[in-house]
Design a protein around this nucleic acid. Structure first.
Lengths: 344, 344
DNA sequence: CTGAAAGCGCTAACAA
DNA sequence: TTGTTAGCGCTTTCAG
């Protein structure tokens, strides 16, 4: 309230002076590296506490070349999937006195490039990225070429030699669609995005493979394109089910699309599973919230962030082996959204 | 892949050398402050581009005393409410070339203190915090006393002289409960947390006020305590509705609790709104997803983050007026979860 | 308009 | 065991 000016932060110089030692000694005493006499350590610690010394990590960082920070670039922090991963990264990091910078790419490759460029000037220790695109990714290649510690989560980039943590998207999708086929479904629709994102591509491949393996045709009219938002998925669903010969089942590639599908079907007055069976990729809170509950392919979300951090820390501390790729298995969680259907 | 060592980052020294000027001149030319000759600017720019000069924001920060970063400490980044705010802060910041550090307090005051202590050593420009507790908050008071740029979001701390952005919790709650009363409800249950969090306290006060204003008694047996998680709210709901004389309506203090209540009621076989009417504070994606859709008190989430950043930037650039407190109004969104009830 | 020099706070050789 | 010194990369007086 009153004009008390912000007092200059106390530096190690102040502490050293107060403890009657040199700056170097004070630093050694405080940070416990190198030698330091018993008495001195105590004296310095007392002085530091008394003055409220906090240290200046920017100065340390300049000296040591790096900030004790790692960066996370998700596709969208509002997506619960990424929010969960961010949460886990944060938790895992806390133990090692690092902070986390989160900068969402908003699923834009351009924005992703700009962000990486900007984060690079911050001298972070390393980066965890969910690449927005499966394209060239020259910016990521450059990072890797310069041995910048980098771990990809959720989405791999073909031929990019860096550690990745993802799930078995193709296998999970294949299992889901096979499950539908076993229930007698022959016309199985799928809502997918323009497949810029690798994850979606892989899931779509799994859909295809399941059909082919069962000797079923892959019909373009059953594959409808949507962006990964609830609104777009509603539209796509309506388009799909407005065809003369309707699908009897629907497979959606992520939880946002599943939600949209549910809403779209409801709008059209179609009942799940009586009129349409439904399986979605990625479990989500409200899948158990609907009536019937939705059968989904679930991913071990809780493991991704923690493992990514471990891999990254490993690289940061100098590990230089070949790239490691972890694919977690998915799990089909059978609930009530799939019905048997009779075949002619 | 091959043993290409990470090449040293190019510094302004390199650029200066390449352009045949002094470091000072190079810096001036690049950042456009002070004088710089036409030709020199061009030459330096060319050299910088050619060498891929990026600048080192850590060094700049050490020199200037601050990192171009602001910190956000939400109660829980997984809560969609905070995720949305984080997203907005991030977006708003991007324009001004700042980055965002997010560190969730996990609703723990202790953790919040440690985080602030840690973030302080990073010399950030300022902080946006949703305090986990309504208690003493000595750590926040200290920050403010030192004129550290600080804006509170969602939760105010009484007597803390700093800018805040929040919503009219008491008013919104009161409106919701009054709405229930108008529909004939007299036994209105509420699920609330231990009220460490200010926001919850205010909402509970609104509940009380609505009852009192209507001449209704505030009955302790209708007020059941839960933590703000889906699981706890399920339990609390079951406890509440296992009483001999059941409430005819239920008011929940946040979206997680609303979800829990819905699940709890379903478990008990109680129908909304036939058996129980329901209003929740805070709108959430799936409120329109249930059948019937849930009537809620909605907050203008999208405005909070942006305003907080604007206020913070204002402080950072030296504004020193008295603390400003913005309370956004809430809005009752009537959907289908409230029924009329006859009174004896 | 440009260069020289100092210094932000800290750490790490090297001496003592 | 402790102190001296140099320097991380940058900006900013102050001279020229």
């Amino acid at each position: 309230m009153t004009g008390k000016t912000p007092r200059r932060a106390v530096t190690i110089k102040d502490v050293a002076a107060a403890a009657n030692v040199s700056r170097a000694t004070a630093a050694r005493a405080l940070n416990g590296y190198g030698y330091a006499g018993e008495a001195v350590v105590k004296r310095v610690a007392a002085a530091a506490a008394q003055l409220g010394y906090r240290g200046n990590r920017v100065a340390q960082a300049l000296r040591q070349g790096q900030m004790p920070i790692i960066g996370f670039v998700p596709g969208d922090i509002q997506n619960p999937f990424f929010a969960r991963i961010a949460h886990d990264i944060d938790g895992q990091l806390r133990g090692s006195h690092h902070n986390l910078i989160i900068a969402s790419s908003e699923e834009s490759e351009t924005q992703e490039q700009e962000l990486l460029e900007s984060l690079r000037t911050l001298n972070l220790r390393g980066l965890i990225v969910a690449p927005a695109s499966s394209g060239e990714n020259a910016h990521l290649h450059r990072l890797v070429a310069e041995h910048y510690p980098l771990v990809l989560v959720d989405r791999v980039v073909p031929d990019l030699p860096c550690d990745t943590v993802s799930v078995d998207n193709a296998g999970g999708a294949q299992e889901a669609v096979t499950y539908l086929i076993r229930h007698g479904h022959r016309r199985i629709g799928v809502i997918h995005d323009e497949s810029r994102i690798v994850t979606a591509q892989e899931r779509l491949a799994g859909y295809r493979k399941a059909l082919v393996d069962a000797g079923l045709p892959v019909k373009p009219e059953l594959m409808v394109v949507s962006q990964s938002t609830v609104e777009h998925a509603i539209d796509a669903t309506i388009r799909l089910f407005n065809q003369r010969e309707r699908p009897t089942a629907l497979f959606t590639l992520d939880s946002l699309m599943t939600t949209g599908a549910l809403l779209g079907l409801r709008t059209m007055g179609l009942q799940v599973p009586q009129d349409v069976s439904l399986v979605g990729f990625d479990d989500f809170a409200f899948a158990t919230f609907t009536d019937p509950q939705i059968t989904v392919v679930s991913q071990p979300v809780g493991k991704i962030g923690a493992l990514a951090v471990r891999m990254l820390m490993d690289r940061i501390s100098g590990h230089d082996g070949p790239p490691r790729h972890t694919r977690f298995p998915t799990k089909l969680i059978v609930r009530g959204s799939v019905a048997h259907v009779a075949n002619p």
